[in-house]
Design a protein around this nucleic acid. Sequence first.
RNA 1: GGCGCGUUCGUCUAUCGGUUAGGACGUUAGAUUCUCAAUCUAGCAAGAGGGGUUCGAUUCCCCUACGCGCUACCA
Length: 480
Amino acid sequence: MNTVRTRIAPSPTGQDLHIGNAYTALINYVFAVSHGGQFLIRIEDTDRTRFVEGSEQRILESLKWLGITHAEGPDVGGPFAPYRQSERLELYKKYAEELVDTGHAYYCFCTADRLSKMRKDQEANHKPPMYDKKCRANSKQQTANSIKNGEKYVIRLNVPDEGVTTFHDEIRGDISFENKLIDDQVLLKSDGYPTYHLGVVVDDHLMEISHIIRGEEWISSTPKHILLYQFFGWTPPVFAHMPLLRNPDKSKLSKRKNPVWVGDYKAKGFLPEAILNYLATMAWAHPEGKEIFSVLEMVRVLDLKSIQTTAPIFDVEKLRWMNGEYIRQTTDDTLVHLITDFLSSRPLSRDPGILDSRLRGNDKKNKEMVLKILPLIRERMKTLAEYGSLAGFFFARPKEFERPLKVAPLKVGGIALQSCEWNHDAMEAAIRLEAEKAGMKAKDVFMELRVAVTGKTVGPPLLESLEILGKEETLMRLSL
RNA sequence: GGCGCGUUCGUCUAUCGGUUAGGACGUUAGAUUCUCAAUCUAGCAAGAGGGGUUCGAUUCCCCUACGCGCUACCA
């Protein structure tokens, strides 16, 4: 009875897992784990009009990619299956009717036309747009007749006209709402599906959820949920409303203004650990002031009460920095796999310039090559996607040059490299010597060699790169 | 419009009523250097406004302003 059970309840209406859902998933997961409890997933697919095919699978995949694992869910089952609301329809109907029997809900036969007209009038008169409770006055007989005649109906929550509904929020304290301002919410839609409000309360209770940790956007609906718990005679779980992640313009994080899908960040070359770490610093700070820490470490120190109430802005720049930190921490072997997997899973058209298919090999030989290149580029990479522009020249000759080559210093460099031994120190000595002989700055010679070999003015250290590239290939590029 | 939630550097945040208001990202300058990074050093940068309470408010209370959320047979 005392076990901590948390959940996230995504609805399959988007192309993937929303980063905001990933955020609440992280907190729910960490909280459950830190209390030796269970974290589960329930799919709330009650809106058929917005249903997106394949969404559920992608949500599950993204969660898995992030490393947030669930004990129960639509894919793995569990003691409270099914975990998909569309498969639990009879349940909601039963509970909605129970509410009707106890007088806490009623049938409503109002048409969409009437409702929208009513709302328009209310708006015109500057009144809060709420259902006017017309059907609450229907007699039992009227209701029975209407149903018998096949009239479409919904079941609405019968909210008391007076009083106040209060609930305690673990993060924000007590929050109260006047009952007269709470709408007679639809609980069961005319298509037989429950609305969020009914579904969430019934399932959270049946699935023995102990803590509801969800987004701030639900605060206003919580009194309806509290009322439902009261009417059913159930003990409500603990509530904690997380602040909403925001766009740089402070609006709720949305796909129109930001990449919001976890898959977007994966495609941009972010590592799951970095994403989670960054998310963890949203509205919360490690008690020791650490910036870089693992989920496991978060499990040790997270306290719901220490979560901030202010909605943070999702700052991709800081995420990039953090991702770079993680790339630098990653072992060579792991990073090789990350890079080769990343490249092979990515559409060729997204890689510009000199990057071509030779870079994308997943074979052993290519992996060895990547391993050699790694020390030259790892501290220059903030995302895996930058590998291409950083290391592309190892695999293919530059197709274009950032600027025209200067012949004189290039010649000097060529002479130096032609006759020298192919190692870092020998090359450096030769270049400096030849530069001095020609009365040039060694710097300029280095730069010209760089442009000729890589096509760019910036990149990994030149001599180390030449060592890997080999003498033959280097001289070939110099003679272009 | 109504209801709710919120307000510390540009951004993420620290602060058990007493601090030169600290850290991180970004940014600026410098060191290093074959470029760019990485690294190191230094700098710039904040308590929305007004009332209270208090010996003392960033911290507690109220008001205003501003921002955000909700206001569907969407979640």
